[in-house]
Design a protein around this nucleic acid. Structure first.
Length: 755
DNA sequence: CGTATATATCTTTTT
DNA sequence: GATATATACG
């Protein structure tokens, strides 16, 4: 492997790797040793610097692949880096420690699980299982889960973990008012349960690493010797736990290079601290700071629009992006289009896409970037209607599909019998006659004996604690798991999967299901088995599924890309469509409510990220009306639209969005006045205000299900299922109705409409 | 126990 | 409008 003594030799001066770099980029690449911070504006060749730097370290024999740690934020970025490095060095990047923070953390943890109270076959649980487990903990504490929802506490605990706080480290004043201050205790119980299940959640993958490094300096020293060079992508998005993790690891060689852009920090809601980037020089004394300001991606018009927008933010490090082109090469101004509703918005985009196609543009080079997942729907419908192929990136991840989670629960339980969450998921899927009652009994027995559900089951089948029929069903299940576990040791994962899915009756369950989704689910299960063929062990596969695998739909085909703005970070397209630039949608109302001015700035950075994805053309759109949760809302154009400098934009002829521009401005003032502030509830009030404003009069705006006329005893109503009837009593939002055909029922007022 | 119907909640963004 | 959970009934 690499001869370390070569580090003392000067690197070969004329490496062809450096040829295509500008001066600043080269500086960032060549400063291999010591701490380096690269402040890289959008489109300035950030990824190039990172990949060339990595290749350069290898080419100059400073380190062997196994001595380099490269962490990214997303799997997409990791794949991208891996691909580009291997094409630079002309061979696969074997041995490199390259992956997301979480994937690398999981890998480290597998090797030392015993030192932090886990076994090396521990299970990584996802958000859904986190919430399930938290719900059980909350209920076990006699707290009403409806008043204090598990999903809320799970989110709070995740933020605590982002900050590196274990239960004993949560500051008293941060303990919060969840269940009257019981949050921290619940957090502690939750961790205890995780330990019993031999499981870790996403946050633990970092937190337990920290605990490991602090408790075992010898282990840390080992990694210090191992990692001679550390590279970090998207440094502005690291949270405190990740920052501490990096700092501990970097103490060894001191060779750490972080690349980031404070203007693209868009994960504050997930605990990211822009402060990390601002503090870099304090944390790593003598750090070299390199700024990349020359943009190679976008036309002057696009760059001008984006720069003008982001200039509205305070508290930036401040960069001035520039590009060489000018004059005729200004490109097209950013186009702004108004639409009546989301359908028209989608139609406008669809037509523009077809227009570009006629100009010979590839679909791959076009993207629709939305603020939130639900917005993709209108575009999907439209693109299907006009027959334009598209892919939705990052919508529902592969692992989040029901059938995949079920299948994986089987594998999890086979590998690791303490995984009660997996047990509960599949013990009665497909139906085996083990319903809620049986599971409750079983759960009580298991908890009483301090056992996992599976091992308790193995014993219970020999007793009369369950009625005979249930006992037999449970025995069948327990024996099957034991059988599969025996097979797991001698069969490759994909063959095991076939056996398990077949013998369990899981495949048969979907074959018998005649819903429209069933064939798709079976197809996904096949896809799962195919994917498994690439793995040697069940363990590797399950890690891959929960940490890496996402829906990679036909990367080779020429398709329009539809994705969220968050998902688009790090990508670029010739033509970018940015729909939904409306107050409340973008900037998102919840972001404003929960985080005020800081939330607004993060939204603006998101808008900046969106615009700077475009190389040649960008179109911003806003609709006057939109359905959210099946309810019509009227929206005013986003303030971001007005913040785009006039000289870089071009407004499409007014399509009649129903808004005078000063009307829009008036609206924003009204919605942002102090009395309107506050925390929760503002969102709904804002929505109500918007509904009311246009709710009367014009029929288009009449909100569905929003009874203009209050229900009165005696009035006639219509119900989707029960048909016509008359109201006999009103109790708040509940109505007592005598239906003509269905008889007397209590129904929520939302479910009926005036007849 | 399973099924069908009724209601609640969801939609911010991801590992 | 879609999906998870709650409830009633068979």
């Amino acid at each position: 492997m690499a001869n370390l003594s070569e580090r003392t030799h000067p690197p070969s001066p004329a490496s062809p790797l450096l040829d295509r770099l500008n001066e600043a980029q080269r500086e960032a690449v060549e400063a291999a040793d010591g701490p380096v911070l690269v402040l890289a504006g959008a489109g300035t060749g950030k990824t190039r610097v990172l990949t060339v730097r990595l290749a350069h370290i290898l080419a100059t024999r400073r380190a062997a692949p196994g001595q380099i740690l490269a962490v990214t934020f997303t799997n997409k970025a990791a794949r991208e880096m891996s691909g580009r490095v291997s094409s630079l060095i002309g061979r696969p990047t074997e041995g490199l420690w390259l992956g997301t923070f979480h994937a690398v953390g999981a890998r480290i943890l597998r090797r030392h699980a015993e030192l932090v109270g886990l076994r090396s076959n521990y299970t990584i649980i996802d958000t859904d299982d986190q919430i399930r487990l938290m719900r059980q903990v909350i209920e076990a504490n006699g707290i009403d889960e409806k008043r204090w929802p598990a999903r809320v506490l799970t989110a709070i605990v995740s933020r605590w973990k982002d900050k590196g706080w274990t239960p004993d480290r949560v500051p008293a004043e941060e303990a919060g008012d969840f269940a009257h201050g019981k949050g921290v205790g619940l957090y502690r119980d939750y961790q205890e349960r995780l330990g019993e299940l031999n499981a870790a959640d996403f946050g633990d993958l970092l937190l337990l690493c920290l605990r490991l490094f602090l408790a075992r300096p010898d282990v840390l020293a080992d990694y210090h010797r191992r990692f001679r060079y550390i590279l970090v992508d998207e440094y502005q998005d690291t949270n405190v736990a990740q920052y501490l993790w990096l700092r501990l690891l970097a103490q060894g060689s001191g060779n750490i290079c972080c690349v980031g852009d404070d203007d693209q920090s868009i994960y504050g809601w997930r605990g990211a601290e822009v402060g990390n980037i601002l503090r870099f020089e304090d944390d790593f004394p003598g750090a070299k700071v390199v700024r990349l300001e020359r943009n190679y991606r976008s036309t002057p018009h696009i760059l001008g629009a984006a720069s003008g927008l982001i200039a509205h933010n305070r508290g930036r490090l401040g960069k001035t992006l520039w590009t060489e082109a000018a004059g005729d090469a200004m490109g097209d101004p950013v186009r702004i289009e108004s639409a009546w509703d989301e359908a028209e918005e989608a139609r406008t985009v669809g037509e523009a896409i077809e227009d570009r196609q006629r100009h010979g543009d590839s679909l791959d080079g076009m993207a629709v970037l939305v603020r939130a997942g639900y917005q993709t729907r209108a575009f999907e419908e439209r693109l299907i209607a006009i027959g334009v192929p598209y892919r939705v990136i990052g919508g529902l991840r592969f692992y989040e599909r029901q059938e995949i989670r079920d299948a994986c629960a089987y594998f999890r339980l086979i590998r690791q019998g303490d995984d009660d969450l997996a047990f509960q998921r599949i013990v009665n899927t497909p139906r085996r006659g083990l319903g809620d009652k049986s599971i409750q009994t079983l759960y009580a027995i298991a908890r009483g004996r301090g056992q996992s559900l599976l091992s308790a089951s193995a014993e219970v089948v020999a007793t009369d604690e369950l009625p005979p029929r249930r006992r037999a069903a449970l025995r069948g299940f327990v024996e099957a798991i034991a059988r599969w576990r025996a097979e797991a040791s001698r069969l490759p994962p994909s063959e095991l999967a076939e056996i398990v899915l077949d013998e369990s009756g899981y495949t048969a369950m979907w074959l018998a299901d005649k819903s429209v989704q069933a064939p798709g689910r079976l197809e996904n299960l096949k896809e799962l088995a195919r994917a498994m063929a690439e793995f040697e062990t069940l363990e590797d596969f399950l890690d891959h599924v929960s940490l890496v695998m996402d829906t990679e739909t036909g990367a080779d085909d020429d398709m329009v890309n539809v994705m969220t703005l968050h998902g688009a970070k790090g990508l670029e397209f010739d033509t970018v469509f940015l729909p939904g630039w409306e107050e409340g949608v973008f900037p998102n109302q919840m972001a404003l409510d929960d985080h005020g001015a800081a939330g607004l700035e993060e939204e603006r950075r998101l808008a900046y990220v969106g615009l700077t994805r475009a190389k040649k053309r960008a179109t911003v759109l806003h609709a006057a009306n939109r359905t959210v949760h099946g309810q019509w809302l009227s929206n005013v154009p986003s303030r971001f639209v007005d913040e785009l400098p006039e000289e870089h934009v071009e407004r499409a002829a007014a399509a009649g969005d129903g808004f005078a521009r000063d009307d829009a401005a008036l609206w924003r003032t009204a919605m942002n006045r102090p009395g309107y502030g506050g925390r929760q509830g503002n969102y709904h009030r804002a929505i109500e205000a918007r509904v009311q404003r246009f709710g009367d009069g014009e029929e288009v705006f009449t909100p569905v299900g929003e009874g203009r006329s209050t229900p009165e005893v005696g009035s006639r109503v219509f119900h989707q299922k029960f048909g016509y009837g008359s109201i006999r009593g009103v109790d708040g939002s509940k109505l007592d109705i005598a239906f003509d055909k269905a008889g007397r029922k209590k129904v929520m007022a939302d479910f009926v409409e005036p007849a």
